[in-house]
Design a protein around this nucleic acid. Structure first.
Length: 431
RNA sequence: UCCGGAAUAGCUCAGCGGUAGAGCGGGUGGCUGUUAACCACUAGGUCGGGGGUUCGAAUCCCUCUUCCGGAGCCA
């Protein structure tokens, strides 16, 4: 007998097969018993009829509890009540383990309880769907970059110094070398990679010790940083746009069922796959002020500003050319105004907020040095970074995507904590 | 860190000064097509901790703890 996955059940109608998985739900009414069976790939209703199955197997099956593990044999056939779906006529059941009373019931639960039971919660249909979309988004990003001549270049997670600022780092003792820090971005290391490989990206966990407490923040999240030699500001945004649109198309093409489970509005995703809007920070502030905001031209955008800027827009919006004093030291000054830098933030529609931060980088040694002095950075610690501007400096640009932010948008999830298997937040380190 | 809110059965919640409740989940029984199945019975509580007011506190007051939502910071 052939072992198959539930997702392939339509290819085996009428022939006995074997499936290995778990009980999602079980119902019985005298001589008839229904098991909602899942195996990771999909779910199917298995139907057991006592007169056909025999007393012993049937009574054994009635002992099954929620999330019990079992190996089931049966004959796939069309669902008697739902057109276009399939069910399994059970011929045999091998119980692997009878599960204890399962903590996650079929009714509603609060977030604290679910997060404390995250190791079990991930089995629930919506979490299953989100994790599969995460997988799809992750590989879609890599696929686009690989197809556009980027090479994977993993930056270190343990670092001797801050990338930007020093207030947001987790620190630890590093043997006899003093303090080391968990990386909050691989970007500076990535800039070294382009001089070797031309275009590079990293993808891994980064850490921010900020005491953030919102639905958009995690203390540990996965970031993809990309960096490309001889790419300037405009092309940098073109690459970002191409990448995001590739991800949208990939998710729509391969995660149809997952999006249905999550009740995600697919039309909104389809509409976002069109040319992105671009506006300067100056234009954004002017617009916000015209809408009644009292924000001034030297300010960063707040959460409500981001929502306002994308309201009514089907596509993401780039905000570019920022005042230099509210952006990072390494961004290149705009040629037309030395108080502006060639940075861009990409804001997702539907209120999902910033998903990418990017910029063209400063290439001039003296200009970079001056900015680092202004920021009172430890120049000795960054000599390697300054060296890049001495040995074959070229125009270059890069950007960073927060994987979970992108998954939150794609899946239409309310809170970012559901888009990573084990979220790390200010008040949450278990499980 | 700041501003709000919450804590009552395993879970989700109601009760808001006068004998501790419901639904789900658990247990027992019933049912040949169930869809968060249904029906009957049943077990299950230091009302977050401490202090106070009161004849009487889950309920009012103070305090602590924990968590949730939002802001700032950012992806």
């Amino acid at each position: 007998m052939q072992d198959i996955l539930v997702k392939d059940i339509a290819n085996h109608l009428g022939t006995e097969v074997r499936l290995k998985g778990w009980v999602r739900n079980i119902r019985h009414s005298g001589k008839l018993l229904f098991i909602i069976f899942r195996d990771g790939s999909a779910e199917v209703q298995a139907v057991a009829f006592k007169p056909e199955l025999g007393e012993e197997i049937f009574e054994g099956a009635k002992r099954l509890t929620l999330e019990s593990s079992l190996i089931i044999t049966g004959i796939p056939k069309e669902h008697q009540k739902k057109a276009g779906e399939y069910e399994l006529a059970v011929t045999g059941i091998q119980i692997v383990q009878i599960a204890d009373e399962y903590p996650i019931s079929k009714k509603e639960h609060g977030p604290d309880f679910l997060l404390s039971n995250r190791h079990l919660w991930i089995r629930s249909p919506k979490q299953w769907a989100i994790l599969r979309i995460r997988h799809t988004v992750y590989f879609a990003i890599c696929e686009y970059l690989n197809d556009n001549n980027f090479f994977r270049f993993d930056s270190p997670i343990l670092t001797p110094n801050a990338c930007e600022g020093t207030t947001t780092l987790f620190e630890l003792e590093y043997f006899d070398e003093g303090m080391a820090y968990l990386s909050q971005s691989g970007q500076l290391y990535l800039e070294t990679g382009i001089m070797s490989l031309g275009r590079v990206y990293d993808f891994g966990p980064v850490f921010r010790a900020e005491r953030s407490k919102t639905r958009k923040h995690l203390t540990e999240f996965w970031m993809m940083d990309a960096e490309a030699a001889y790419v300037e500001h405009e092309e940098n945004m073109d690459i970002q746009e191409g990448l995001i649109r590739h991800v949208i198309r990939k998710v729509l093409a391969t995660c149809d069922k997952e999006l249905d489970i999550l009740e995600r509005d697919k039309e909104l995703l389809k509409a976002a796959d069109a040319p992105f809007k671009r506006m300067t920070h100056f234009e954004a502030i002017e617009y916000l002020r015209s809408q009644g905001s009292e924000i001034d031209h030297d300010s960063d955008l707040g959460a409500t500003d981001e929502v306002l800027l994308t309201e009514g827009s089907a596509v993401p919006v780039f905000i570019e050319k920022w005042p230099k004093n509210i952006k990072a030291f390494y961004m290149r000054r705009a040629p037309e105004d030395e108080n502006l830098v060639l940075g861009s933030d990409l804001i997702a529609p539907e209120g999902f907020g910033e998903i990418i931060g990017g910029s063209e980088r400063e290439t001039d040694y003296e200009a970079l040095l001056a900015r680092m002095k202004e920021e009172k950075m430890d120049l000795d610690a960054y000599q390697w970074f300054l060296d890049l501007r001495k040995y074959g400096s070229v125009p270059h640009s890069g950007f960073g995507i927060g994987l979970e932010r992108l998954v939150t948008w794609m899946s239409g999830t309310h809170h970012i904590r559901e888009t990573i298997p084990f979220p790390r937040m200010i008040y949450r380190i278990y499980p």
